[in-house]
Every structure is written in C-alpha cells, then in structure tokens.
C-alpha cells in the first residue's frame, strides 16, 4: 500500500492522484496562482472524449455541477498509464469541492431502469427456496397479510440468506396487489445471518478430526 510521507512537504508529483483505484484523490495546487489554483482530477473511462481546451462540467461529491471549466492539461504518469490526470484551473472557493468531471451527459433516469410491469408469475422471488411471484400472489389473494404467515406457507424468506433479497420484492407485490402497507405485518428476522457449522460452535477447529 502506498502511503504519504508526512515528514516531507508535498511536491505535487500527482502519484497519489494516479494510484487511488477508487479515483478518490484530487490535488489542489496553489503554488502558481493562489486565487486560481490548479486542480488535478483522475479520470479513466472514455479517455478519448477528454481534450485539452474543451470545457468540462466539474462535479462535487454529490454529483452536482460546480461549473464548466476548460481542460488546461492532460497528464499521464508512466507508472499508472491507465489514469488520466485532468488539470483545470478553478476559483479557490470551489477548488476543494471538485471531485470529478462529467464527460457523458446523463442518459438514464432511475425510473426507466426499474420494471414498470408487474413481475411475471413465473419469476422467482425467493431465490433460496425458489418461490415464484405467482405463488406469493396466490397467497396474498387468499387473504395473507402477514409476511410470517406467507413465509410459513410458501417458504419464501426461509432460506440461508434470511430474506435479504426477497423481502423488498414481496413488499412490491403487496403494493402491486393494491394492499395497504399499513395492513401488512413485516417478517421477524432472526440470527444467524450466515450459516456456520455446528462443529465451530462446539469448539472444533478447522481440519481437526473429532472421533
């Protein structure tokens, strides 16, 4: 793991910006211009679409656009060739808030990636116990309003995962069926959350024979 040597002054080498796999490091360099510092932002996707002189939208950590700024320089460290170091000049007021650039215009809205049609009857909702949307729907249409009762008769949520996946999908089916959520009793969660061998609780170490 790389670390920052705090006994020395930052030299502005940009290695810290280039090396972070999460693109979480930015560098604000005030040395040339105190009021209009140079901000270096890492960028890896669609590299060909970033050009010097092109104004790019710069965003803060929440993805809000701070403004459009022309790219001053694009640098690449030899040791980390896949990461572009995009440099812009920004007003010192915003410089520390900049975390990235937005090259592509937003193309998808969250509402468009969720299915709007009700799940087909044959869709598997509880993957551990392979319970389908149709089986759950039938139970709800027969009057089941308690997730624990639903679990008892269909086994949905009774598998190893403890209903981590199916619970929100079952809630969705309740809603699709027009059932008031206030009428529905949520399931009771219990430990364990992962499966653990009996031998572990009995104090037997891995690989040990117990005869």
């Amino acid at each position: 793991m790389p670390y920052r040597d705090t006994s020395q002054e930052c030299t502005g080498c940009l290695n810290c910006v280039a090396i972070c796999p999460g693109l979480a490091t930015t560098l604000v360099d005030y040395r040339k211009n105190k009021d209009l510092p140079t901000v270096t932002l890492p960028y890896e996707l669609w590299r060909e679409s970033v050009e010097v002189g092109q104004p790019v939208p710069v965003t803060d950590k929440d993805g809000a656009i701070l403004g459009h700024f022309p790219v001053q320089k694009i640098r690449v460290k030899k040791k980390y060739p896949k990461t572009l170091l995009v440099q812009i000049q920004m007003n010192k007021k915003f410089a520390k808030k900049a975390v990235g650039i937005r090259v592509l215009e937003p193309q998808i809205e969250p509402s468009t990636i969720y299915e709007k049609e009700p799940l087909p009857d044959e869709a598997v909702i509880c993957r551990c116990e392979r319970v389908t949307a149709g089986e759950i729907r039938t139970a709800l249409r027969n009057g089941v309003r308690d997730m624990n009762h639903l679990k008892a008769i269909t086994r949905s949520g009774m598998g190893s995962c403890g209903s981590k996946t199916c619970r929100p999908m079952i809630w969705r089916i309740f809603q699709e069926e027009g059932i008031d959520p206030g009428q529905v009793t949520d399931r009771v969660d219990r430990p364990l959350f992962v499966e653990v061998p009996l031998g572990y609780f009995a104090g037997i170490k891995e690989g040990e024979r117990h005869e």
Binding site: R190, P197, L198, H210
Partner: peptide
C-alpha cells in the same frame, strides 16, 4: 454432525 451448518435459531 460437526460439518452441518446452522441456519437459524429462535
């Protein structure tokens, strides 16, 4: 039984 994994308790 030592290899059998516990799923849930109550």
């Amino acid at each position: 039984l030592r290899n059998l994994r516990v799923r849930r308790v109550w």
